[in-house]
Design a protein around this nucleic acid. Structure first.
Length: 564
RNA sequence: GCGCCUGUAGCUCAGUAGGAUAGAGCAUCGGUUUCCUAAACCGGAGGUCGCAGGUUCGAAUCCUGCCAGGCGUACCA
């Protein structure tokens, strides 16, 4: 759409004594397409020209060069509005979408640049809860978004697979070994053990025991290591099952346990460099001059902390991937932690610290408080998916009983509803989980977008023939058609914005806007009619819409059925 | 206490680099199906954009103060 603004700037340049780039920066798109495709607010010009804005707009409207590609240039109050000829706009946008197909919106802007992202990163031995969906799906969407912009995304699942909690788990496990020793143990059973540990009244004595077990693990005691391996393996197996349903993938599963040795090395180097100092028996980096509490690297007893492991991991990632950006898709509770880690990286001379970003997101709570794994107060992600799929199945039985692949469709719709219900919110908002909302498939939901897609597909199916290759697109004159074309043209920009702001919800909002306009259009107008020319033009629009909605859903990690 | 985030319709939220009458969905009330899938569409009702100042031709948007909620604030992650 750049060519239209270029043309506007060219014509305005003749009337205004301003640089082209200044004029361009004043241009904006009206909130409502009935007010045109581009507009120039004349308020800022009032000062230099010493005239009232409406008068300036009117004079510009009178004197500006008219003609294609604009069908109308008019002054409204203090604005000069430009209407691109419907045919020209539609031609530009639709041919692009139809030619590029599923690649529409993609670019090579990020060619040769790796964007490494750390997302999902659950703790071993605990099941994935509904609260994990946020980081997991935001990360997954960013992965897909950066990929279509030409970047080389690298997905890391930085598993929480190290720490004293494993000692705790081992204590509980050992106590019940006889009843549990039949081989496999499920993650839910591990969770029970964990909860049981924290329910013990005799916590203090058990804590000592737990520390002893963790120490054994660190020292490579065969029994401890084998238990740990078993927990890790079982957990990964279950995580994988859920990730498969969600369509989420990772390029690496190296967790915290992979950085134990390097952590010691980090501490040694930082001591030598004088960055780390002893304080109250611990090793810390003083950050007072940066208005932050000290960053703790090592406890009194010599063991490392997660900040140390994060620093070691960051160095490893830089070394391994030579990333352009390193994104931590992690809850906003850890904001301070990442500010500290990034600052420490900077202090030890890593100029790439400024390429690290904490992509934070709000908390998920539910009516009745926050989730607490420790107390077993957790809503399993799989259970939520199951209920959603079950409900989707019921609705299909009711609305489309003859559908062939009901189970497959129910899976797509149910899972899509859960994913979209989360990802449509802006990242930094806290969300209250509520079954009624999660299981609602009406309105601004995943199923609504899928349904829109199915309707679009239905039209093409009904037409049955090969799409016309050309059509008189100037026939697309209805308000909705005009808006749809403008929106379609805006898709690439929305993808870019989503990447710049690390905000998949931008794509989600865009899709709702697009689908909403389409459904209004669908209600008011028939695509396939006796008017062959109009039918041809609308079919091309429909095809383009389907392409873009599918693509947008794909970026969010949501699948779309043919029928539902 | 200090720091960060949030506060827009009964509820959940959107609101692009300050711009045109503040928009959706849910819920509610009423309407639409011989017609490309009614998981849809249309209409009604619902607002001191937390409060008070300020900057500006113009503020939900920027600045200051206050109020409310959330998160964080040295040996958990």
């Amino acid at each position: 759409m750049k060519l239209f603004t270029d043309e506007i700037v060219k014509r305005l340049e003749k009337l205004l004594e301003m640089d082209a780039s200044d004029i361009e920066s004043l241009l904006q798109t009206p909130t409502d397409t009935t007010m045109g495709d581009y507009s120039l607010p004349c308020f800022k010009l009032a000062k230099t020209l010493r005239k009232a804005p409406p008068l300036i707009a009117q004079e510009l409207a009178d004197n500006i060069e008219k003609g294609p590609p604009f069908e109308k240039i008019e002054a409204v109050k203090g604005y000069l509005n430009f209407f691109v000829a419907r045919g020209a706009l539609a031609e530009t946008v639709l041919t692009q979408v139809l030619e590029q197909g599923a690649r529409y919106g993609e670019s090579d802007a990020g060619k040769g640049k790796a964007v490494v992202m750390d997302y999902s990163s659950p703790n071993i031995a605990k099941p994935l809860g509904i609260h994990h969906i946020r980081g997991t799906m935001i990360g997954n969407a960013l992965y897909r978004i950066f990929k279509v912009l030409g970047y080389t995304p690298v997905g890391l699942n930085y598993l929480g697979d190290w720490g004293t909690q494993f000692g705790q788990l081992m204590v509980s496990y050992k106590r019940r070994e006889s009843e549990l020793s039949r081989g496999d143990i499920t993650v839910k059973e591990l969770l029970d053990l964990y909860v049981e540990f924290h329910n013990e009244s005799d916590e203090e004595r058990l804590d000592d025991e737990a520390r002893a077990w963790f120490k054994k693990l660190e020292d490579g005691d065969p029994e401890a290591v084998s238990l740990w391996e078993k927990f890790r393996e079982e957990s990964l197996k279950e995580f994988q099952r859920v990730y498969d349903r969600l369509g989420v993938t990772f390029d690496s599963y190296v967790g915290e346990s992979g950085f134990i040795e390097q952590s010691q090395d980090v501490i040694r180097r930082m001591k030598e460099a004088g960055v780390a100092v002893e304080s109250e028996g611990a090793m810390v980096v003083d950050l007072e001059q940066y208005d932050m509490p000290p960053c703790l690297l090592q406890k009194k007893d010599g063991t490392t902390l997660y900040a140390t492991r994060d620093i070691a991991a960051a160095e490893y990632r830089r070394e391994t991937y030579k990333f352009d950006q390193l994104l931590y898709v992690v809850g906003s509770q850890q904001k301070l932690h990442f500010r500290q880690v990034f600052k420490v990286l900077e202090l030890i001379g890593h100029t790439w610290a400024q390429r690290c970003h904490h992509v934070d997101f709000g908390m998920l709570s539910f009516t009745g408080g926050t989730f607490s794994t420790r107390r077993g107060k957790i809503l399993f992600l799989e259970d939520v998916l199951d209920r959603a799929v079950e409900l989707a199945r019921e609705i299909i039985d009711e609305k489309n009983p003859t559908l062939e692949n009901k189970d497959e469709v129910a899976e797509m719709v149910g899972v899509g509803a859960v994913i979209f219900g989360d990802i449509k919110h802006r990242r930094n908002k806290d969300i209250v989980f509520d079954w009624d909302t999660a299981l609602n498939f009406d309105g601004e939901t995943g199923p609504y977008l899928q349904y829109s897609c199915v309707r679009l597909g239905g039209i093409l199916r009904k037409y049955g023939k090969k799409l016309p290759t050309t059509a008189d697109l100037s026939l697309l004159t209805a308000d909705e058609e005009r808006t749809l074309i403008t929106l379609l043209g805006d898709f690439p920009r929305q993808i870019r914005r989503a990447a710049e702001q690390y905000e998949p919800s931008i794509v989600a909002s865009y899709l709702l806007d697009l689908a909403g306009t389409f459904n209004t259009f669908y209600q008011k107008h028939r695509v396939i009619s006796d008017d062959a020319d109009l039918t041809a033009a609308r079919l091309l629009l429909v095809s383009a819409l389907r392409t873009v909605i599918r693509k947008g859903l794909d970026l969010l990690g949501i699948k779309c059925p043919e029928r539902m």
